[in-house]
């Protein structure tokens, strides 16, 4: 079992996401993370899915994804030089005069931004790969995390080569 990052170019239509996610759920695969949004082509969206599965199962899922009429292109970014990022917002307990300074120091180390401050908490915004965000979460846990939201990974190949359209 290995972690795979799939990049899927789809028509931006109602129901496409359930068609795509349904192919994972019917095989009992859990999706680790999923991010979707409009992309460089008008009327299209790009979905990034991270899932943990055997290589041959992923190959079968990619073939099945390719059969969906609304799917234009499926690429497995795993194994290619790529950039992967996700964004997390973390609301940490930080009462005035307690550990606030320490938390701000951690934020600085992780190049996180403080996007909201209240008397009892602060919200940090951090961007990075999954490990970085996990590491930051671990460090902040001792101060008390009130809420933690993350976008799911988006990925792109390095260099000038894009993921071409068309099947």
């Amino acid at each position: 079992m290995k972690q795979h990052t799939l990049s899927i170019l789809v028509e931006n239509k109602a129901g496409v996401l359930s068609r795509v996610s349904g192919l994972f759920s019917r095989r009992g695969f859990n999706i680790e993370s999923l991010a979707v949004g409009p992309c460089e082509e008008p009327g299209m969206s790009r979905i990034t899915i991270v899932a943990i599965a055997d290589d041959d199962k992923v190959e079968q899922i990619m073939k099945q994804l390719n059969k969906l009429i609304d799917v234009i292109k499926v690429s497995d970014l795993t194994g290619s030089p790529r950039v992967e990022r996700e964004l997390a917002l973390i609301k940490v307990t930080a009462e005035l005069g307690t550990s606030r300074a320490e938390i701000m120091q951690i934020a600085e180390i992780f190049r996180a931004a403080i996007v909201d401050v209240s008397p009892k908490s602060i919200i940090l915004q951090v961007i990075g790969d999954t490990e970085k965000i996990n590491a930051m979460e671990t460090l902040l846990r001792q101060y008390g995390i009130k809420e933690f939201v993350r976008t799911g990974t988006v990925g792109i190949l390095r260099g000038s080569k894009g993921v071409p359209g068309g099947k």
Partner: peptide, 8 residues
């Protein structure tokens, strides 16, 4: 003719 980009 029907042309669908995602179906060839």
């Amino acid at each position: 003719k029907v042309e669908l980009r995602g179906y060839n």
